[in-house]
Design a protein around this nucleic acid. Structure first.
Lengths: 185, 185
DNA sequence: AATTTCATGTAACCAGTTACATGATTCA
DNA sequence: TGAATCATGTAACTGGTTACATGAAATT
């Protein structure tokens, strides 16, 4: 029985980024500072300890680039074990709970998914679309029940959630079409 | 000079909910379990310590409902100080940083904003719309720059962010129209 | 009589924040 | 030569998680 791996957004981001190409903590920091990936922290106080702990787990390995320097730049790359872990995280089905409680983690998983190939990306998107549509229905039900005892802005905030989730479902549909087209070529 | 108050989503949710009407920790727990507000935690291990700490700060006050019981139900209500704090949090301008780093907190602020009146709600929505549109432009710029060195799914994930933010801006526009209509009546 | 729900709480743990520290290298 | 940037790290703190504990009241 495979152990269920839980991982924080920051750690998954690090894992995914070093999987694309080996890089240092500082490189990662820059990525977080300059791209939308930065939603998953940035501060050295988070990145360096995370690198240490991932290394301790044996998922990444850091090697000094310039041995003569006092504090040489550590370049981290994925180990075989890290590769397996990353794949198993990306392969996990997209559940209702993921969508509600860890949406950012879900999108992050998708951002790295193409290393598993197109079929996996499509599988992910289909699950994502299904769960999003189910969640929209659930939110609409709540809206129906609570309409009365909600303040105007409370109702509008709920409306934002409904429309946002609906948008996500539509995005998934479009993405599926796009990836299917690529497949055929 | 007014001190800049930072508050966690859970604490703001608690403050806003007891502001609507006094209630116990257990009542709050149920709200978190049964409404979309539940995004901001739920576990007793978070709620009860948060209540204690808010009480210690003097923002809420708990009073036992049934003094004869061994562990009487504590009903919390907002103090005058808590009322002032809540208002000052809701009055804060919607900044670019808020939008990027604390989006959930921003929506939560909006959900409770009508206690400040319609003009404040409209002010909030205008700021929200402006910042959202600016962020869309920023993301589009990034998309333009990175198009090449991004994987298909990475690009699609970015696309999700752009479309989601665009959706938020549109939502704000609609909400402004709706609240303006209410105003006139 | 047994189970569920009401109701509050604690303890160990984890991950991230802010702020600070260190020192090398590159650039103006 | 002074400033900015490269590069890595630590310490104190905060706030949340899971899991557990307690016991009354209501329901089946």
């Amino acid at each position: 029985m495979k152990k269920d791996i839980t991982i924080s957004p920051l750690r998954l981001a690090i894992l995914g980024l070093v999987a694309m190409h080996p890089q240092s903590g500082y490189d990662l920091k820059k990525v977080f500072e300059t791209t939308p990936m930065g939603n998953f922290s940035s501060s050295p106080g988070a990145i360096y300890p995370a690198l240490k702990s991932l290394e301790k787990k044996g998922w990444i390995r850091g090697e000094p680039e310039n041995t003569k320097s006092l504090r040489p730049r550590q370049v981290y790359s994925l180990t075989d074990e890290g590769d397996a872990i990353l794949s198993s995280v990306l392969e996990k089905p997209v559940t209702h709970e993921d969508l509600i409680w860890h949406f950012d983690l879900v999108m992050l998983r998708f951002a790295f998914i193409d290393r598993l190939g197109n079929e996996q990306a499509l599988r992910f998107l289909r699950e994502f679309q299904n769960e999003s549509e189910a969640y929209v229905r659930h939110l609409e039900e709540i809206r129906g029940q609570m309409q009365q005892n909600m303040s105007p802005s409370g109702r509008l905030a709920l409306e934002h959630g409904i429309q946002g989730t609906r948008g996500s479902a539509r995005w998934a549909q479009k993405a599926i079409e796009e990836l299917s087209k690529l497949e055929k070529k």
